[in-house]
Design a protein around this nucleic acid. Structure first.
Length: 586
RNA sequence: CGGGGCGUAGCUUAGCCUGGUAGAGCGCUUGCUUCGGGAGCAAGAGGUCGCGAGUUCGAAUCUCGCCGCCCCGACCA
């Protein structure tokens, strides 16, 4: 039981200027967090209570799914990362932790980084400690602070530089067992999100820098989310847009015939898809080949798409480059012989075809017959270009971004899209890390094999904020019971009356023994202030004790989600409140 | 990192264009009245106008540099 007057809940009438979205405003206004700097927040007492409750539920569910809790250092020797498989890709988001020096001499060389995640620590640990199939499977997890130098922290806890994450790492003897571990975590995640009151859905996801073989993201649908979820209600398909596919393009379609003779034509000053669509050329965008030049690990490669299709850069990850980026105009001219706007992949027109690491074409270009593409000569294009006959394609793949409205692969129904907040991610990693760090075990035939890994993350703070985002109204937060900082607010309108406070204490004791955390608002504030604050901090149940009610012999009970006020006779108040607590707690 | 915007009291902000005594609301302190949905009146405290240079008799205001923050893009739990 806490007395508001003795506690610390600094509520605000107005939202801070830097808060943009509802959940961020409410986090600050309800006195849950305060900002130290961009992406760095202090959890105030109320916020900390919520974090602890979410953390505890997370711990229980991950343990139920086979997880074993441990805790690793936040400071990592940089060598752990340098010897790992993704140092080049990950270093950009990592904070270095070098000595601040004495202000006189140059600081010592940096030796540590602040951990953005822990594959680079757990895998060497397991490598050293586990050598036998008898000790597998194992799934280690921790709930700890992570550090990432986000390119752009924003929206309060949603994308912070320092944040609390549950991270788990599974180690199995083979692929089939790794899938079992993965499924157990998926079940644990579903239980966790259900218990904390977050309506999260599992969607297929891109593996990104993690480099796993498959993965799911857990998304809370919200307009302020950073991700697009593509889904089909009829088939149940759901995927992050980065990964989503549609049935737009049959994968075995041959060239659309009949083939015309390829010819060059002058297009002075025309350098865009739109310009070729306009008069006098009148070439529809879906009859054009769009040729993009990228640099992958230092070598140029081409990506060909239909004119109207957009490249989904995440899908280029499948090509196996460690690092890739769009080529600069200078690089493009030296490889292709022309500037962007006149590029194409027709055999014999590329200036330095031998320099290319590959030409990767989206399946959808097979829908084009007698199309148009750049001639690799500034101001010229080619018409009657056909895929198989004319283009120098190394490999076809799915590289285009799916749009809502395209047919779903299973049901054929139009795909829909929705914004979502990514609150959790599970990856089946494979042996990428175990091979690199030598995490191998010996099987019952005395054979040595790399362990098959999975890794799993839940953003605790992000989950907290996502719940506020999907559970609030015009007056404030509406906490789900399981994670509310307190579950019952006893609002004492006349705390100067000893009988009012005596009653409050009695009711608090009854509610606590029924399983509620109780906050008593004993502040010498006006009723209006107390009610506004009560709605703002959003505890699920509120009991109001007023001088007026005491004369009538009643107290009032109200749920945050309802407008109805229940008048309880004093004689029944303890029993009824305890019953309400038990009813809400299930 | 690219593009845009903003830094004035604990919070929200006016003033800046057109240089001349730094203002308001909320919050805070004291008193009186009030007291079931962010009270009224009165009196008060609280500001290196982000930092540093420059222009000027004089800079919150104009110029330059730096720092911080916010929004849009790439990244992510």
């Amino acid at each position: 039981m806490q007395l508001w007057s003795q506690y610390f809940i600094p509520t605000l009438k107005e939202s801070p200027a830097d808060a943009e979205i509802a959940s961020h405003k409410l986090l600050v206004r309800a006195g849950l967090v305060r900002k130290l700097a961009g992406g760095l927040y202090t959890y105030l007492p109320l916020g900390l209570r919520v974090m602890r409750k979410i953390t505890q539920i997370c711990r229980e569910e991950i343990e139920r799914g086979g997880g074993i809790e441990l805790e690793m250092p936040h400071l990592h020797p940089v060598e752990n990362w340098q010897s790992g498989p993704r140092w080049a890709a990950a270093r950009e988001i990592m904070f270095r932790a070098d000595s601040a020096g004495d202000g006189q001499r140059a600081p010592r060389e940096p030796e540590f980084v602040l951990g953005p995640t822990h594959e680079e620590v757990i895998t060497p640990l397991v490598q050293a400690e586990i050598t036998s199939y008898r000790d597998l499977p194992k799934n280690f997890f921790q709930i700890a602070t992570k550090f990432r130098n986000e390119i752009r922290p924003r929206y309060g806890l949603m994308r912070a530089r320092e944040f609390v994450m549950m991270d788990a790492y599974s180690f199995d003897t083979d692929d089939a067992h790794a899938v079992v571990s993965y499924q157990k975590m998926k079940v644990a995640y579903e239980a966790f999100f259900r218990r904390v009151g977050a309506h999260a859905i599992a969607v297929e996801a891109d593996t990104g820098v993690m480099g796993g073989s498959f993965s799911h993201e857990f998304m809370v649908p919200a307009d302020v989310g950073d991700d697009d979820v593509i889904y089909c209600e009829a088939s149940g398909y759901a995927a992050n847009r980065e990964k989503a596919t549609s049935a737009l393009v049959p994968k075995d379609l041959a060239d659309a015939a009949p083939l015309g003779a390829t010819e060059e034509f002058a297009t002075p000053g025309v350098g865009t898809i739109a310009a070729l669509e306009a008069a006098p050329y009148l070439v529809p965008g879906d009859k054009q080949f769009k040729t993009l030049v990228f640099m992958g690990d230092g070598k140029p490669f081409l990506v060909i798409l239909r004119g109207h299709d957009e490249l989904e850069e995440a899908k280029l990850g499948a090509l196996g480059f460690t690092l890739f980026r769009p080529a600069t105009p200078e690089e493009i001219v030296s490889v292709m012989g022309a500037r962007p706007g006149s590029l194409g992949a027709v055999r014999g027109t590329i200036a330095q075809p031998g320099a290319l690491a590959g030409v990767f074409a989206d399946y959808a270009i097979r829908l084009i017959g007698n199309g148009v593409t750049g001639a690799n000569k500034d101001g010229f294009h080619l018409r009657n270009v056909n895929v198989t006959r004319d283009l120098q394609v190394t490999k076809f793949g799915d590289f285009r971004r799916v749009r809502a409205g395209e047919p779903d692969g299973k049901s054929g129904q139009p795909l829909q899209s929705r914004r979502g907040i990514e609150v959790g991610h599970i990856f089946k990693l494979g042996t990428k890390y175990s091979e690199k760090y030598g995490a191998v075990y010996t099987d019952d035939q005395k054979q040595s094999h790399p362990m098959v890994m999975g890794c799993y993350g839940i953003g605790i703070g992000r989950t907290l904020q996502a719940i506020i985002e999907q559970s609030h109204d015009a007056d404030g937060i509406v906490w789900p019971w399981a994670i509310a900082p307190f579950q019952l607010l006893i609002c004492v309108l006349d705390p100067q009356l000893p009988e009012a406070m005596d009653l409050a204490n009695k009711l608090a004791a009854a509610a606590e023994s029924a399983g509620a955390d109780v906050l008593i608002d004993d502040r010498a504030e006006r009723p209006g202030v107390k009610f506004k604050d009560a709605d703002l901090i959003g505890l699920p149940l509120r009991v109001t004790i007023g001088g007026k009610g005491l004369k009538e012999g009643i107290v009032e009970l109200k749920a945050r989600t309802s407008k109805n006020v229940l008048k309880l006779p004093l004689a029944e108040a303890e029993v009824q409140i305890a019953a309400a607590v038990r009813a809400a707690a299930v």
